[in-house]
Design a protein around this nucleic acid. Structure first.
Length: 202
DNA sequence: GTAAAGATCCACT
DNA sequence: GTGGATCTTTACT
């Protein structure tokens, strides 16, 4: 089955606040199409970042820079940035225009196109989980880079989200990862994941 | 112009 | 568990 056979999500879905969207995105399908190849994955772990108040967010205090500008777009766009000089992270922008909220995709489970994922990753580990169980890993696995920053995930054809048949899952929440600098926002339970799923980042 | 830090990953001990 | 790789973005001089 090809990715385009799945049902796309409506724009309304992405206009929800980041916390709701982060929760709702769990179990949804993340589709990547490039060079006539289709990769389909299931989202199993996300984190919410809420601009104005969240010290862990790049757009804390509504900080507008060249990089964070993407987060001020309307919900449904992709926010992609380079971290630690070597890895990309993929976010789904949430809420309405000028509200800098976004959902970081932290881990996915491969459903289709596994051979392309393996080709993109090239790692020693034979464990399937190591292919996509982290934000930097899944971007490499899906061939996502800065050229997709700001692209539309509702109407776009390269990277988008779809409804999967099996969407009923048990979603848990907990503190976010690697944002020790975020002070009182360091421990808020804005990370969502499928309980006990093998592809979680940790 | 310069400097410091980062929403990470991997290899190694 | 620890440290190195690696470079953009940001803030400040």
């Amino acid at each position: 089955m090809q990715g385009r056979d799945y049902m796309r999500l409506e724009q309304e879905f992405f206009l929800q606040d980041a916390l709701t969207l982060a929760k709702e995105l769990i179990g949804k399908g993340l589709v990547r199409e490039m060079d006539g190849r289709t990769i389909i994955t299931r989202i199993v772990e996300t984190e919410a970042y809420i601009g104005p108040e969240d010290k862990g967010c790049h757009a804390y205090n509504n900080k507008r820079t060249k990089r964070t500008e993407t987060m001020f777009l309307e919900g449904g766009h992709a926010y992609i940035y380079l971290i630690y000089g070597m890895y990309y992270c993929l976010n789904v922008v949430a809420a309405k225009k000028d509200k800098p909220e976004a959902v970081l995709i932290r881990a996915v489970e491969p459903l289709e196109g596994l051979e392309y994922i393996q080709e993109n990753r090239k790692i020693k580990s034979n464990k399937l989980e190591d292919l996509t169980n982290g934000p930097g890993k899944l971007c490499q696995a899906l061939g996502v880079d800065k050229s997709l920053n700001g692209s539309n995930m509702i109407l776009g054809t390269q990277l988008y989200v779809v409804e999967l048949e099996q969407s009923k899952v048990e979603v848990c929440s907990g503190p976010r990862i690697n944002i020790d600098y975020a002070q009182e926002y360091k421990d808020v339970p804005w990370r969502f994941y499928i309980k006990g799923h093998p592809f979680l980042s940790r």
